[in-house]
Each structure stands twice: as structure tokens, then as C-alpha cells.
């Protein structure tokens, strides 16, 4: 009543940007939902195409040449083992190295040099996997051959190092190629996080008389922990699904053991699909897609576990 005539000092009406807000929020939410739906479609499709293989009888599966009389589970398990083992080797090698490289770029190298080095690492993330495979064959294999031979000769009592056979087309080499492949991705992510460490924390630490290493342990590493885990996950995601490099470097086999220096023992799921799919037909395609589904589930649970680790620690975020 009175308000109609008495214009208040504060402007009335809708809050500014309400329309923009709801449109923008709608788009964001929509994108998130699209991703969920997309993933559901992929999972659904994989399951749909795998069903014939999962439901097939033993006799039917014996008709699939490359399974060599195995049933589905005993076909998938060695493959899954090889996939995980190669990724594990890759992570064990790549993560500590990446942390070192990221620290070097963010806190050790002179500022002018650091930008160039960061650029270099980014470039390496761009090298196609098939080229990494060629490199593994042409450069890495001859390089690590003598090292493996020495290990096998002098430390052969340790089962994983026993009975090396040249050329070095074994899981250890494949793991090393994978490590090099995921190095740039892990490093780039960790480096970005390290560079975001609040300068105040670092200066406070140094002001208390800490050495550079103590400052890193007190300020940089705790701040970057979730970034490191997230980077390792990114790397693992790439290593688990990596196809061409493993295909070119490894002499495959279907055994579950830790003899990583012997050829013809292990194979990864992705490389196996790429290698068998062109000649597969009918039920064989379904079997390979079933192994793809298994890989999908594997990454699902690996990521779930990694998330649980992150969730247990308080997340470092400016936005929470």
C-alpha cells in the first residue's frame, strides 16, 4: 500500500542476474547429467554385447579359436592380472619420478627455465601412443636388455628376476614404456598443484628456519596430496587401457605369475582386444567385448578405491 508510493532507497525487483544464474546452472547441471547418461549407455552397451559370451555354454566357447578351450573366467583372469601388473610397474616407476620432476620445475629450477621445462613436459604428453610403441621397440628394448640380463644373472634367486630371455619383450619393458607414457600426464597435473601452494605457507616455513626440503615436506607436499593421488589415477587410467604400446612391445601369454623378465607370460586386456579383434567374428567379438567390460569394471573399482583414499583425508580446496 504505502510501499507503492514510497520508493525505498534500495532498488526493488528481482535480484540481478537471476535469469543468467538459472540458465547457467541449468547448463552445468545438464552437462553433468549428460555424462552420467553417456556412461550408462556405454556400460549398457558393453553388457548387451557381452551377454552372448557370458551366457554361452562351454561347448559354444570352445568354438572360439583364440580362447583355446578356456571358459570365460579363466580367459579373463590372466589378462586382468597382466593388465594390473603392468600398470603397477608403471606407477611404481612413474609416480616418484613425477613428483621429483614436478618439484624440480616448481621449486628448484630457475623461474625462467621452469616455464620452458614445463612446456617440454606438456609436449611429451602429446606424443601418440603408437609412437611410444615404436620408441619402445627401437630404443628402450636394446637399452634395458643388458640391465635385465645382469639382474637375471646376479639376482635370479628373486623369482621375478629369474630366467630372462632376450630380446626384452617382457612385461617389465612394457611397464617401463607405460611409465614413460604416463609420466608427462602425472607430472603436468602435480606441477600445476605444486605451483598453487600458498606462498604464505612456504614463506612461513622458511622464516622458521626450515631448509628447502623441510619447507617442501611441511607446506608443498601436504597441499598437493590430493593432486598427487588424482594425478596417479589419471596415469593409471591411461596405463590400464593403453593398447598400442603394449601391443608393439610385449610378447603375450596367458599365465598368472610374477616372472616379469620372461617373454610370453602376460598380456593386457586392451592389447589383447586390439590384437584379436580384426580376425574375430561372431561369438569371438562378444568374448572380447566381455573382456572389455571386465576392464571397465576393473577401472571402476580401482577408481572407487582411490576415491576412498582421498575422501579419508580432508580435501584441500579453496572452494569448500
Amino acid at each position: 500500500m504505502a510501499a507503492v508510493t514510497d520508493e525505498p532507497a534500495i532498488r526493488r525487483g528481482p535480484a540481478p542476474g537471476r535469469l543468467g544464474n538459472s540458465i547457467f546452472k541449468g547448463f552445468s547441471l545438464g552437462s553433468g547429467i549428460v555424462i552420467v547418461v553417456l556412461l550408462g549407455l556405454v556400460a549398457g552397451f558393453l553388457l548387451y554385447r557381452s551377454l552372448p559370451a557370458i551366457l554361452a555354454s562351454r561347448e559354444q566357447l570352445e568354438g572360439v579359436g583364440f580362447m583355446q578351450g578356456r571358459d570365460l573366467l579363466s580367459y579373463v583372469l590372466p589378462l586382468a592380472f597382466g593388465t594390473v601388473l603392468s600398470s603397477a610397474i608403471a606407477l611404481i616407476v612413474a609416480v616418484p619420478l613425477s613428483i621429483g620432476i614436478a618439484l624440480f620445475i616448481s621449486h628448484y629450477a630457475p623461474r625462467r627455465l621452469a616455464q620452458g621445462l614445463g612446456y617440454l613436459v606438456d609436449l611429451l604428453a602429446a606424443i601418440p601412443s603408437v609412437v611410444f610403441g615404436l620408441w619402445g621397440v627401437a630404443f628402450l628394448m636394446p637399452l634395458v636388455g643388458p640391465v635385465f640380463a645382469w639382474l637375471s644373472e646376479n639376482m635370479g634367486w628373486f623369482p621375478p628376476f629369474s630366467d630372462y630371455q632376450a630380446p626384452a619383450r617382457n612385461l617389465a619393458t612394457a611397464g617401463l614404456v607405460l611409465a614413460v607414457m604416463i609420466l608427462p600426464i602425472i607430472t603436468a597435473t602435480i606441477r600445476e598443484v605444486f605451483l598453487q601452494t600458498p606462498t604464505l605457507h612456504e614463506e612461513a616455513s622458511l622464516a622458521l628456519g626450515a631448509t628447502r626440503w623441510e619447507m617442501i615436506r611441511q607446506a608443498v607436499l601436504p597441499f598437493g596430496r590430493s593432486g598427487i593421488i588424482s594425478a596417479a589415477m589419471l596415469g593409471m587410467g591411461r596405463a590400464l587401457g593403453e593398447t598400442m604400446a603394449v601391443l608393439l612391445v610385449l610378447s603375450p601369454g596367458f599365465v598368472i605369475n610374477f616372472f616379469v623378465l620372461q617373454p610370453g607370460q602376460h598380456q593386457s586386456i586392451a592389447a589383447n582386444i586390439a590384437s584379436q579383434l580384426p580376425e574375430a567374428s561372431g561369438l569371438g567379438v562378444d568374448v572380447l567385448i566381455a573382456t572389455g567390460l571386465f576392464l571397465f569394471l576393473l577401472t571402476f573399482f580401482v577408481n572407487l578405491a582411490a576415491r576412498a583414499i582421498i575422501a579419508r583425508r580432508a580435501e584441500f580446496s579453496g572452494a569448500n
Binding site: G32, I33, I35, V36, L38, L39, L41, V42, F45, L46, R49, M233, L234, M236, G237, R238, L240, G241, T243, I269, A270, I273, A274, L277, I289, G292, L295, F296, L298, T299, F300, V302, N303, L304, A306, R307
Partner: peptide
Amino acid sequence: ITVLVDVMTGIPSIVAGLFAYT
């Protein structure tokens, strides 16, 4: 969404190709 995005990073490239193809 967070978990599924993580899972999506792990999609083997060849499976993504088969999905699009189908």
C-alpha cells in the same frame, strides 16, 4: 557424477571406439 567421471577416464580407447561404432 564425480565417481563416474573418474571411471570415464579409465575407459579403454578401443571400447570407446566400439561404442561409437555400434
